[in-house]
Amino acid sequence: MSPLVYYLFTLAFFVFAYCILGWGLNLQFGHGGILNFAYIGFVAIGAYVTGALSLGKPSGGQSYIFGFSLPFPVGLILGGLAACVFALLVSVLTFRRLRTDYLAMVLISLSLVLYDFINNFVPLFGGADGLTNVPEPFADALGLDTNTFVPFFAGVSLLVALLMWWVMSRITNSPFGRTLRASRDDDEATAALGKNVFKFRLISMLIGSFYAGVGGGLIVEFAGAFNTSAWLPGETFLIFAAVIVGGVGNNKGMILGALIVPVLFTQLPKFIPDIPGHPGLILNIAAMAIGVLLMLVLWFRPQGVIPEKKRLSKLPPLSERHRSTGAISAQLTTEETL
């Protein structure tokens, strides 16, 4: 296979993975209004747990917990659930009384501490070295080599992404999603309508974290390795940028966001050769470009490139409604009275 095609499949994989990550954050932030600045921490938990469950017993100086050699997709699902459990702990601790920015402060601190802890505590997930040689799903069974595994797993990820899209669109189009968006717009007014806002936010936090965990699990199974350099806290911002660029509260727009931000700005620059004498400068410039892009989008198109779509009532016009019901209209046109 030519290197270009190989790259394209790699990029395609990252689009699918970032779509899943984006949908999860979109449920929390776009629909639920939860500023989860620790999102990448939940991705990392999914990745580590999936990796450590898929790996066999530690050997050769490696150290990590689990090592159960679980087959795909069991490790992936458990990775998602692990992120969920972590989200449950965090939410119960912080959701009830914290203002948006307080919560963001606690969450960003949490992601830093998690980072620091996993980096230092080697027996958990190998410390700074992280996990390596995570088995490639089905590679042995199907006799795949490095060249064929990439397109194969990109296809698997597409299927996973399609499934997760279906699940997510059912959520966001349901009355649950509607009430969640109501709590995003005004939590006090929503509570005054009899809604337990805490419950709605908690559920959106849990499901969003499951998506984070599954996205992280896919990344570790694709890349075969995962360590702390893969989830610097700035990565959270990247997913936020993808959600905002793609359109807050819009699942389809997420695909565009996943294409533009993570792929164009972080995966692609990795393939651009370094400027001699300035290692990492290209990545720095790419990161700054994302920050600037996000501010520009927020300023000029605050609803995102593809705005949240209106969920229309599909009710008939007033005249038709009366033809069908036979009621007499004493309706004043609103424009006249107000």
């Binding site: 509607r178 717009d185 005004d186 969920r311 229309l312």
Partner: peptide, 17 residues
Amino acid sequence: RELGGLTVFENLMVAAK
């Protein structure tokens, strides 16, 4: 305190008991 990111119709639908 309108729920600004919802339509007028959705504002009512949310309130259903």
